[in-house]
Nucleic acid binder design. Structure first.
Lengths: 189, 189, 189, 189
DNA sequence: CATGAATGAGGCTTCATTCAT
DNA sequence: GATGAATGAAGCCTCATTCAT
């Protein structure tokens, strides 16, 4: 590949995601990244001083996109429709989850900026949980779902469910399956 | 006769698990491990030539324990009891799942032995899925669960569900919640 | 633009040769080399990824110089003059031979690049033998030397002869001695 | 290979020679040696405290055998016959030369014992040269060979010549070739 | 900004060697 | 003697990171 003249944050985020998803975090180096981008390794330092800074910035960016989509989903008045919309957002943004697997593996104290980003990320991740909780609570209030199950538990289950797509099913089938099992259970009626 | 043994594989596995769960894979070195064990770094090389060999050996060992417990669970004749038993095994072996998060992050080609172990692990992981599938299929046949949901999808969901314990619930409550949602769904009856 | 260069391949080759000739291959490390060059050890890795790669690259370079000088020698029409010229080239490049003593001691499979270089080196070494053979054959054809001795044997003897300078003789005396013994033998006429 | 109960110095020397000749000095470890002998690595330490001690002891042993054979050769009254006998001894003991290639590569100061052995070896090697010189001088005195060539030079050439057998010739043909070239030269009469 | 060069820190491995039984 | 176990020293190597241009 011929060397390119310039890069921008968008490209950095794109390649960061691809690199992490395709090769795992242990293969995420500025070395590998710069090779994919066709620039010198040191060039990346003009944008991010540490690899953790890049990775956390990418994660923040990604999460902000998710929030925007969830805001869209919130426009749905009906609980069931809203729940399915939520599931759809999460399933579509599956790469978020894959990328976030590395969160616990990362060095959270690599620099001051990293610490700030990590804190922000944790807030965001918390908010992601809150939004799910809020969804469930609303469902309970509307009488759409059972009141005898712990909201926390349902939420947690929902969050992990959307993390791992089933490769044998299409995205929409997977959304449907999750939705169906959660709403109705698997027991024979 | 040799000098007195000071470490053995059991201890290596134990500390490996603790180290990975507590500090993440990126902190798993023979250096850190040897410090925890109170032996010289090179001593560990007398047991495993590469860190990936140790980690994969540990994972194999762990999985074999899980299989043994699932064999126990299989003794249960009734589907619902069996399913709950399965969930219990998986939830109890939560550290397996945590440790296995590192699987994609690991260098699978670190050595010939590692490649062998990785292949075996992949077989085991496949078998784990098969056993879950078999459970679900049996449930369908017995008429205990709905036939209109994809077995694959249910299985996948079950597998990810058990991976992530909810710290706000006790182990048994978590088992109960998973079991309950899966069987009955969250919809208000 | 980059920082100022402080070493280059030429210097690496020079110090490699000196180090090997003065201290032997077992003392040839990047550590020792970097100390002589006054740079950090890791700097050398920016040039060669393995010590065997450096050593084989150096050898290839050296042999190419020898070939160029032999091409010069080939311009001599007269057999005896040509033979003496050949001997002179070999004797002058004595360090080649000294350095090449390490060839069998080296790890020929240290990396893919090393294997390529080693193969090339073996070809070169073969060509070196061929050129000597060609010289001897030409001498036989011209009637300058006896036809009853095996070309292979003469060649081999010539090649080992030039490898070992006699420290008690000057370079030119040594050339003369080899030339004289080979042409005329040591028997009293 | 089944573990053996015991080893002796003879076996150590044998395997030492084989290992060095087959794999080169850089592959000569107590580890490799113990594997070939089918004993524990530490067992060898009951015989030699350092690998250099073993290697030098082996070399001394080998040289003593050569000296004994040269003593035999000295019984020959006629110069030419004696010279050929010398060449034959050296060619037959080719492995000595191969093994001795490592001499400059070895750590001569590994231990006090090693230093003693190295000094002894250097004496022996000197004597080997002296015996060759004496042979040549005697030849000159007897009028069997030319007096105008430096004894040192002839000797040196002779010593390196016998070091490298030509694989395309039989041992006796090689002896014959060396002898012939040295005595008569390669020039057409 | 972009870059090529240099470097330090830290992890990986291999062995020679010691030691208790 | 023979052995299995432990260890330290030394070399190998990869990256993140800094810096001068």
């Amino acid at each position: 590949m011929p060397r390119q003249r310039t890069i921008d944050r968008r490209m950095l985020f794109q390649e960061t995601e691809k690199l992490i998803v395709e090769e795992g975090y242990h293969s995420f180096h500025f070395k590998a990244l710069s090779e994919r981008l066709g620039v010198a390794r040191s060039t990346i330092y003009n944008y991010y001083a540490k690899k953790e800074e890049l990775v956390t910035a990418y994660m923040l960016d990604k999460l902000e996109q998710v929030f925007a989509q969830l805001d869209e989903a919130d426009r749905q008045a009906n609980f069931s429709v809203r729940m399915k919309a939520y599931i759809r957002v999460w399933v579509q943004q599956a790469s978020v989850h894959q990328a976030f697997d590395i969160f616990p593996v990362m060095d959270h104290h690599a620099s001051a900026q990293v610490e700030i980003n990590v804190e922000q990320l944790q807030q965001y991740l918390g908010q992601l949980g809150s939004r799910a909780s809020t969804l469930i609570e609303a469902g309970k209030k509307e009488g759409a779902i059972r009141g005898d199950l712990p909201t926390q538990g349902i939420t947690r289950l929902l969050m992990v469910a959307v993390q791992a797509p089933d490769p044998s099913l299409s995205e929409e089938e997977w959304v449907e399956t999750i939705y169906n099992i959660f709403l109705n259970g698997i027991r024979h009626p």
